[in-house]
Each structure stands twice: as structure tokens, then as C-alpha cells.
Write a protein that binds this DNA or RNA. Structure first.
Length: 260
DNA sequence: CTTTATGTTGCGGG
DNA sequence: ACCCGCAACATAAA
């Protein structure tokens, strides 16, 4: 599930539930979601810390404290919830009690990613490996990264070291809205096409962040991807499906003509 | 049984 | 150096 809009919603959860509060207890129910640290030290380092305003960069959520930073990555199936006296479910891997009966649940079925505990240098190293946040990048930087990129648009948009935050669904949605084929060379776009792409990026992210997810609406390409033989919501042409940059990719062959 | 899944990483090859 | 495809990670569903 998680792409940038989902992680932004988790940031909101962490802020509402935990910001300014002290961590009263930490229960690790599945050690394998912890990275680079064992249970004992993880618990010891966090208990008693006060949570600061959480930050998000791309798909990373950074839960700052008056000590180390708790970094979350949600992989494909992770989520963060704030509960009151709720019994943990099967996939609730880490529970963080923050007082007032509130408890944060890090839930993840597939455990492709997990939690890190980082010092300032660790946070710097993490951010240094990421491109600008897709929701914050300005037009000039966006142009620069496209022009510096060899290879196709789809991989440029989804490569986190180039631009942080977009996943497979959002990339397809943005390219469809901008009427650009996912295999078009990134550096080969004209000025007007880059403007269109940036506009689509802003529009899709705005709507998705407001919704707290990638909206599964019928007027969006995303609403059609599970529907074989589906038609383009704009022109009615049958959508094409293929494997581009290693991911299942959808596009409209009429709205998004293939590169020569 | 096989294929696919909105995540990333590491490896081999062009 | 850069980019691509592919396998791997863990788990469920079609």
C-alpha cells in the first residue's frame, strides 16, 4: 500500500498520537522487523524518550525524539496506527505505548522493511541517498534531474535516489495524466512536456495526499489496473499492460504514444 | 502449482 | 559510470 501519500498519512498518525509525549513502553513482538539493532538496546534507547515532530522524506518516516531517531519504512504492506486499548493483531510487530492509553502499532504483513534507530549521522546518511522529496521538489530541480537522467521516465520517477516518494501506481498515474509513455527517455522531453509532467506530479500528489492514499477512483488510471481489458478513462482506448523498469506498468497506447 | 503484488537491494551484463 | 532486467526478501491471494 504505502507510497508517499500513505506515508504522509502515517506521519500525521505519529504526530497526532505521539508528538510531545513520552514513550512509556516498547514491545517488540517480532524482532525481524528491527534493522541493525537488537530488541534489548532498541527498547532501552527508546523508553523514556519524548517524541518530537515527525518528518517524512519520500517513503521514509522519521520519528525524532530527544534521543535517537526512530525511522520507519513500510515496504509494500506496512502501516502505522494509533490505538486505545486495542488488542494487537497478528501483523502488529512493534507496539509503542505513549501514555493516555494511546499506543502506536507498527503493523506489517510481509516485513520487507521495518524500523531503524538512527543517530544524527545515520539520518544524514539516509537522506543523502535519496533524491528530493516528490511533494517538495521545485520545477527547476525537477527539470535538472530529468535532464541528467539517461533511461526511461518510469524508472526515473520511481528511483528513490533520483526522486523520493513515488511508487509504481503513482508513477503510472502521473505519466498517464501527462500523456507521456513510460519508456520515453527522460532527458529527451521537450520543455512543454516537462512542464506537463511536473503539473501532473503536483496534481496527482495533491489529490492523493488530501485523500491519504492513491485514490482508487474510476477517473484515475489507478482505478482500472485490476480490471483486465479496461478502457482509458479519458479516451476509451483499451489500456496496455507491460513490464517496464521491472514493474507491472499500465498506459494508454493512444494518449501515451510509444517513443520512436 | 504458478503468477502477481503499491517496497528495496544486490548482482550480472550491456 | 550508468542503466536495465532479474532474483531475492516474506506472505497472501487469485
Amino acid at each position: 500500500m504505502p507510497e508517499l501519500p500513505d506515508v504522509e498519512a502515517f506521519r500525521e498518525v505519529l504526530a497526532t498520537c505521539g508528538q510531545g509525549r513520552r514513550i512509556e513502553g516498547v514491545e517488540v513482538r517480532d524482532e525481524s522487523v528491527l534493522h541493525g539493532i537488537g530488541v534489548r538496546r532498541f527498547v532501552r534507547e527508546l523508553e523514556g524518550r519524548r517524541l518530537r515532530a515527525p518528518r517524512r522524506h519520500g517513503k521514509w518516516l522519521l520519528g525524532g525524539t530527544d534521543g535517537p531517531t526512530l525511522a520507519f519504512h513500510f515496504g509494500m504492506t506496512g502501516e502505522l496506527r494509533c490505538t486505545r486499548d486495542a488488542e494487537p493483531g497478528t501483523y502488529d510487530r512493534v507496539l509503542i505505548a505513549v501514555g493516555g492509553g494511546r499506543c502506536l502499532h507498527y503493523r506489517d504483513q510481509r516485513k520487507l522493511k521495518g524500523l531503524w534507530l538512527l543517530d544524527e549521522a545515520g539520518v544524514r546518511r539516509l537522506l543523502a541517498g535519496l533524491g528530493p522529496d516528490a511533494a517538495a521538489v521545485d520545477r527547476a530541480d525537477f527539470d535538472r534531474l530529468l535532464l541528467a537522467r539517461r533511461g526511461g521516465l518510469k524508472s526515473a520517477l520511481t528511483e528513490q535516489s533520483v526522486l523520493a516518494g513515488l511508487g509504481n501506481l503513482l508513477a503510472d498515474e502521473i505519466l498517464w495524466r501527462a500523456r507521456l509513455h513510460p519508456s520515453r527517455p527522460a532527458a529527451g522531453l521537450g520543455e512543454a512536456e516537462r512542464r506537463r509532467l511536473y503539473g501532473a506530479l503536483r496534481g496527482v500528489l495533491r489529490t492523493s495526499i488530501d485523500a491519504g492514499r492513491v485514490p482508487p477512483r474510476g477517473s484515475w488510471l489507478t482505478g482500472r489496473r485490476d480490471d483486465p481489458g479496461a478502457a482509458c478513462p479519458r479516451c476509451g482506448t483499451a489500456l496496455r499492460r507491460g513490464r517496464i523498469a521491472g514493474r507491472g506498468t499500465y498506459w494508454c497506447p493512444r494518449c501515451q504514444p510509444a517513443p520512436a
